[in-house]
Amino acid sequence: MSPIRIGLVGVGKIARDQHLPVIAANADYELAAVASRHGRVEGVPNFADLAALLANATDVDAISLCTPPQARHALARQALEAGKHVMLEKPPGATLTEVYDLIDLAREKGLALLATWHSRYAPAVEPAKAWLAGKKLLRVHISWKEDVRYWHPGQEWIWAPGGLGVFDPGINALSIITHMLPNALIVDKATLEVPANRQAPIAATLEMHDHQGLPVRAEFDWRQTGPQTWDIIIETDQGTLTLSRGGAVMSINGVPQIEQKEQEYANLYALFARLVAERRVDADLAPLRIVADAYMTGRWVRVEDFVE
């Protein structure tokens, strides 16, 4: 089969770090065009926006959207209306309704749509899920703490409404845990710490449970300096499982079992190629629903100004 001619929209840090190298390394794809207000990619046609790309690069089969979530719905709808398959960076939209609208449109037109959750494809996630099968789960603790100045330097969109703030990385942990646990999680309490000069939280604590009473606590913080923390600890009746480094390492009772190099985006693009071939939708909104519930039920606490 001919490679999927893909157009990339948004040439920022995540596009350069992950999307472009993975597309170049995958024979199922050919980078056909790029649209960005500021960034450029050598060797392919570059356009100022998606409308110009669609008008001129008419042989593009699919669009990968790496823009901030606030603009993603309009762009994805534009691409789907033009008959293009669509991959959405996480989070898939600024609201749940936006993404449900895209799901309906993609199915109506028989096009592929992928709402990506890259952390679910960390190498230890599936082995960890398999290890948990058949065990009684006792409690879950999530600690996802990193330095916003290092990972998102000067990115104002993350602090704007719809940018999610600390939930931008925190939703990665939620994407893992909602994939691994057998039941849906209900948010009991949430505390959102919001800098006085910003519109999104810099830290958050969530208390959740499932219908069997499993307690799940999540702590997210963007003020961590030094070593970064991306850990999920699950206590069971047969030992304690720890996922660390964002799902790259799995330990049982403190003894490492799996430690592999991440291939998250390579796996995502492999999945998207299958979805394109099958003209199928893959869009699980469980992680975004938890964030929405936290915003709806959370207690907002003003903290000191954030200074870049």
Rank of each mutant, 00 (worst) to 15 (best):
V9S: 01
D17S: 04
D17H: 01
L20M: 10
I23H: 02
A25R: 15
N26D: 15
A27R: 13
Y29V: 01
Y29P: 01
A35K: 05
A35S: 14
R37E: 08
H38K: 07
G43N: 07
A48N: 14
A51T: 14
L53H: 05
A55M: 09
A62T: 03
I63L: 04
L65Q: 04
P68L: 04
L88T: 03
P91G: 10
P91I: 09
P92H: 06
A94G: 11
E98A: 14
Y100T: 15
D101E: 15
E108P: 07
L111K: 05
A115I: 06
A124V: 03
V125D: 05
E126K: 13
P127I: 03
G134K: 02
L137I: 05
G154W: 00
Q155V: 00
G165V: 06
N172L: 06
A173R: 00
S175W: 02
S175R: 03
I176K: 01
M180R: 07
L181T: 05
N183I: 10
A190L: 09
T191D: 14
T191I: 14
N197A: 13
I202G: 08
E207G: 04
L214K: 00
V216K: 03
R217L: 13
A218V: 13
W222D: 03
Q224W: 09
I232L: 07
A248G: 11
V249T: 12
M250D: 01
I252Y: 07
V255E: 14
Q257L: 12
I258S: 06
I258P: 02
E259T: 09
Q260F: 05
E262V: 14
E264G: 05
N267E: 10
L268C: 12
F272K: 03
R279Y: 10
D293C: 06
V301C: 07
R302T: 13
